[in-house]
């Protein structure tokens, strides 16, 4: 804080530093966000003049079955976006942590790879992998004599959501693992020695010592994956466009359909705003609920 005062100067001289970035941000992000809120209060086909309808769009959403369906699908997707990558990530990190550096590096490099890829392209690749007629997955199943498991994945009501969800799990688990690895490196090795002296098994140590200390990482992983699941668009857009029969419809896809296919831009904006509010709420909840045990004490 002392430093700040020494580097500080009268406001008009400070503004040179912050204004260029802030103006750009205001022009192309914050301004449009505010306008979106405005549009959500109108009925607008994207061409003529918008008609003011107040909160009617939001009221409409509360009785919109498709919107509820999209929320329900999103909740189910969270299992694949958040829970599975989190579990797998912690488990794999615990194993990997003890490995020889060279092997560790190789595995880490492999497991992390999907996370740097464009999800839109991954969606296209996986749609091909899942293709019942031409795709490798079903061909592989038949080769293994498991032809009865060769389902029409992305066309099957029951399996389409898990099929899309598993791609998200595949995308995220290596990333989660790497974050947990770094968390484990932060921990004091003496704690484990102490636990071992106490006669705790590996699993017990993990549960009673490692896990609580990893809460900051768990929070970060939850935050990132939950937000990603609510924001999910690219993957579903390229794999199923929300189909079949809305089985993978999520709010962002619904918004796209409403706006750019059905020209109901006001209603679409309301869906988008609700989605944003959802993200804020979840963000806040995770910050409040998942907090390291010692945070209050310090």
């Amino acid at each position: 804080m002392k430093l700040r005062s020494k580097l500080d100067a009268p406001v008009h001289k400070n503004l040179i530093y912050i204004l260029p970035g802030l103006i750009l941000y205001a022009a192309f992000v914050f301004g449009p966000i505010v306008s979106a809120v405005g549009i959500s209060l109108t009925d607008w086909n994207g061409l003529g003049l918008p008609t003011w309808v107040g909160l009617q769009n939001y009221a409409g959403l509360f009785s919109d079955e498709r919107f509820y369906l999209s929320l329900k699908n999103n909740a189910e997707l969270m299992v694949f976006y958040c829970v599975l990558p989190l579990g797998l990530g912690i488990g794999l990190a615990a194993i990997l942590w003890n490995m020889k550096p060279r092997e560790q590096l190789m595995l880490r490099t492999m497991l992390f790879l999907p996370y740097i890829m464009p999800t839109a392209v991954l969606g296209i690749i996986w749609a091909w992998l899942y293709n019942p007629a031409f795709g490798p997955i079903n061909q592989g199943l038949r080769l293994l004599g498991l032809g009865s498991l060769a389902l029409p994945w992305l066309g099957d009501f029951t399996f389409v959501l898990p099929a899309v969800g598993l791609v998200a799990t595949w995308y995220f688990f290596g990333f989660c693992m790497v974050i947990f690895m770094s968390g484990m490196q932060r921990l004091d090795p003496n704690l484990f020695d102490a636990a071992r002296v106490d006669g705790a098994t590996g699993l017990q140590t993990f549960r009673t010592v490692t896990l609580p200390l990893l809460l900051p990482e768990i929070r970060v992983v939850l935050l990132l994956t939950v937000i990603a699941s609510i924001k999910s668009f690219d993957l579903i857009f390229t794999m199923t466009r929300g189909g079949p029969a809305n089985a993978t419809l999520v709010p962002n896809i619904y918004m796209y359909q409403l706006g750019f296919q059905l020209n109901r831009f006001g209603y679409a904006a309301a869906v988008a705003i609700i989605g944003a509010i959802l993200i804020f709420t979840v963000n806040y909840a995770i910050h409040r609920l998942v907090r390291p045990a010692d945070e209050g004490a310090n």
Partner: peptide, 15 residues
């Protein structure tokens, strides 16, 4: 054709 739910119209034409 089995698996028709999971293939596109374009795929079906190729088949």
């Amino acid at each position: 054709y089995p698996g028709f739910q999971g293939i596109s119209g374009d795929d079906a034409v190729q088949l």
